[in-house]
Amino acid sequence: MKRAIVFNIEKFATHDGPGIRTVVFLKGCPLRCMWCHSPESWSFEVERYPDGEVIGREMSSEDVLAEVLKDKDFYDVSGGGLTVSGGEPLARPAFLAELLGKAKAAGLHTAVETSGAATEKVFEPLLPLVDLWLWDVKKLDADKHFTYTKRPLAQILANLRRVNDALAAESPRKRSIVLRCPMIPGINDGAEDIEAVGRLADSLPAVIELHVAPYIPYGIDKARRLGLKVYEAPQPPPEYGRRIVAALTRHTAKPVRLP
């Protein structure tokens, strides 16, 4: 049985897929997004904050599923289920596949929150196990994408198109993609950025929706405690998110909303 380091299990999650969900956060991420709000997820190892608080514990897929299944009544009445996030869940593909397989066998709706940064072979076994891909779109300029995330955009876009093509070929369509757009003022929210995101969404039939995720500075304190560095800026006001949604709506036929 596969095991992985889990650093959080969030119950009654309502912004990470449809209905009421449980989000399982896997530790470890190959990206280093400058605006990351969970720098404690970067390392693949169990860590401690200086005050001794432990970040992460090793769990088997069976243990994780047992925890997730405690809330099955909530999923059943709301159309919710399990979301696996991180870190980057695709960095633990074997564990992810095993967990999602167990979840599907238990009748759960499944979602994966991902940057899409993984080798091509990771995706095929996961395709039948993921009902909803929550796919980050961070910056559609290759050079700047690498500057801001330390990972190449080309690989991510290639993976996105492959997954899209596989899902779009299903008949009837059962699985889908939501593009998640972190928006950081002055970094990736310019007119060109927004236009590019809209074009991308419209080019992908399996994309059903776009979610705008305004920058939140929740990672600053955690980064400092761990001796890491993240982008530091004030949280934009609520109208920022609404403005981005309105702008993006003008450039895509797909629904756009705040999660």
């Binding site: 119950k11 009654f12 009421i20 405690k70 809330d71 009544d73």
Partner: peptide, 11 residues
């Protein structure tokens, strides 16, 4: 605890 945990306890 959150909603689901408390409800599961009562349940």
């Amino acid at each position: 605890a959150g909603v689901t945990t408390v409800f599961n306890a009562i349940g």
